[in-house]
Design a protein around this nucleic acid. Structure first.
Lengths: 355, 355
DNA sequence: CTGTTAGCGCGTTCAC
DNA sequence: GTGAACGCGCTAACAG
């Protein structure tokens, strides 16, 4: 042990920090007998470094369990490998599917999502966007709620690639991946009209905060209007979509729209498949014939709808794929490659036994 | 426009970076006419700052749309407000429920999860833990796959609070929140024995990579052994749990275990509710009486199981609550408060119509 | 209450 | 192929 002068001791470590003595690049460099920057180069690509020194550095790093500090690396100019992800909900499997696809694609490139969930609250979304951007991510993926002007300002001024997902109809700030929610609603209208239904109702959750559910409803109405049909009734219940909410909604609906013998057959369109499952429960409890007395149509193609004894008629969205494509688009943008501003993955009408 | 000397130009900004000219704390301070540290204090708590200067700084910050750089803040000594979260899956709603609860609790404290999904791959989990720790998070939440020794070394040596979730039986590295998977399996055994079942089978997904499903199976066998009963048959199919996999598993199972007239009634226990739903489908297609010929028992209490015409007998886990408690435990640890090493939230036997 | 000094750990300049 | 100097943006210590 050679004694250290006070100056050296001060420069190498702070005696007040007994806990946080994680090895730094400087120590790796010292052990390997090279400069910090050479160690840095060796531990990353290994380019512009002699094979011998590369191995010395790697050995030294392993010997002291060196773990790079990406905060410092990113601050010093390296590209961030974090991607901000803001979703409106996780209680609906729609967004966990998207997140699943997104995370898979990001991880392949060594990127990681920082997650925020807005619960469809515009102010919370705004705060999340602000918070997550302050981590200086490489980009941001957003399934927007009803965004505030301030949110859009933050996004536009962030200087990083933005990928909006789920609905390709609104003009994108930067890039968007999804489907046309409005066209999906219209497709359901066309299908139901083609099946001969003329008496339609709508049962939804609180769609005032869910712009995509609202677009689907509008698309449905558009499609009906083309045949000069209007919704016989609409019930909107507060709260997020769920099985019990759908059951309650149908219960209310049937008070205004009697069904059964002596009435035209009624088809209820739901804002989401879980709502439709609830509707099915109500029909079972009330002894209604599905689809004879009451027909049901959902949206999203969730597993729960297909698990029913009568598989649900619905429109399937390609959620995992949307996540994967959003990740790919973001990574391409980060790499400076050109990306289509709008990627429409489409949707698929699933004709079940409930219509 | 006053001409700048070369020295000034070099000190204030780099002409090679036209894009990234986000305002810094230094600019806020300059506009407000204070030092950087005063501006820093004002923009955080506002403590030890005169009310007048506080307002000047805040006004200046808003005027130039200042957004703090948390990378720099954290590197300089501030506590990180990121929490690493490593989950084995997102395709099963079990973990999106947990993530939902966790994110909610973290966000309340201004913390954000950085997410990694291992797909039950030990090596991928190891890489994720390493990657996420290199962001120097305030802590780490982990629903472990079959962890490698290297993973445990990384965790133990990380110096940050670790919360393991889902199963309270393994000895925690630091802290754990969940339920006893083994006790849950045993509880199901006791219930089924109490109902008079003596002929039991097991249908599972690839539980070799899913330690919790394996523990439940062991608990089930433990409970049966107490009554000197053993499983009549076991089918394990590769891949993650899903509805189709459950259907296939029951199909195979019934080749060895005939049911119906002339046979003792059989109850099949599944590794997860979605598998059990698949089993129900097989029963429906084969025209079997449930639970007369074939009884079914799931695990986890997922919505899909309760959405069946016959609600599924299962054991409900409190997933959202586990996430919330894990977040609370982590935040408490970060704040230096004492935390129970093991938090058992228990489980609930749900007696449906399938047994 | 405010400012000065001194870094956090790393990567991007340039040189050699 | 390697290194020196510098700065990323911010905050913890002290000083006053």
């Amino acid at each position: 042990m050679t004694p250290l002068s006070i100056t050296q001791a001060q420069m190498t470590r702070d005696p007040d920090q007994p806990d946080d003595n994680r090895p730094t690049l400087a120590e790796v460099a010292r052990i390997a007998g090279v400069s910090e920057i050479t160690a840095s180069r060796a531990l990353r690509g290994g380019t512009h470094v002699a094979r011998a020194t590369l191995e010395r550095v790697q050995t030294a790093a392993r010997a002291i369990n060196y773990m790079p500090n990406r905060l410092a690396g990113t601050l010093a100019g390296g590209a961030s490998r974090q991607v901000a992800v803001v979703l409106p909900s996780l209680s609906n499997s729609v967004f966990s599917d998207v997140l699943h696809g997104l995370e898979t694609r990001l991880e392949q490139a060594g990127h990681h999502p920082i997650l925020g969930v807005s619960n469809y609250d515009p102010l919370r979304e705004e705060r999340l966007v602000s918070d997550l951007l302050s981590w200086r991510p490489a980009g941001l993926v957003l399934a927007p709620a009803v965004s505030t002007a301030e949110t859009r300002r933050l996004l536009a001024g962030s200087g990083v690639p933005i990928v909006e997902i789920m609905d390709v109809d609104p003009a994108p700030i930067d890039t968007t991946v999804g489907l046309s929610q409005r066209a999906a609603g219209r497709a359901m209208a066309h299908y139901l009209l083609g099946r001969g239904y003329r008496r339609l109702a709508y049962a939804g959750h609180d769609i005032s905060t869910d712009p995509r559910a609202l677009s689907r409803l509008q698309g449905l109405q558009d499609g009906l209007a083309e045949a000069e049909v209007t919704l016989a009734a609409t019930v909107l219940l507060p709260g997020p979509s769920s099985v019990p909410l759908g059951r309650d909604a149908v219960g209310q609906l049937l008070q205004d729209c009697p069904v059964g013998a002596g009435h035209d057959r009624l088809v209820v369109c739901f804002s989401n498949d879980d709502m439709a499952v609830g509707g099915m429960f109500h029909a079972l409890s009330a002894g209604l014939d599905v689809p004879g007395d009451l027909a049901l149509a959902g949206f999203n193609g969730l597993a729960i709808g297909q698990a029913l004894p009568l598989p649900l008629t619905t429109i399937a969205s390609r959620r995992v794929e949307i996540g994967e494509l959003a990740g790919a688009a973001l990574l391409a943008r980060v790499a400076g490659k050109p990306v289509e501003k709008v990627q429409d993955v489409g949707f698929r009408l699933v004709i079940g036994a409930t219509t």
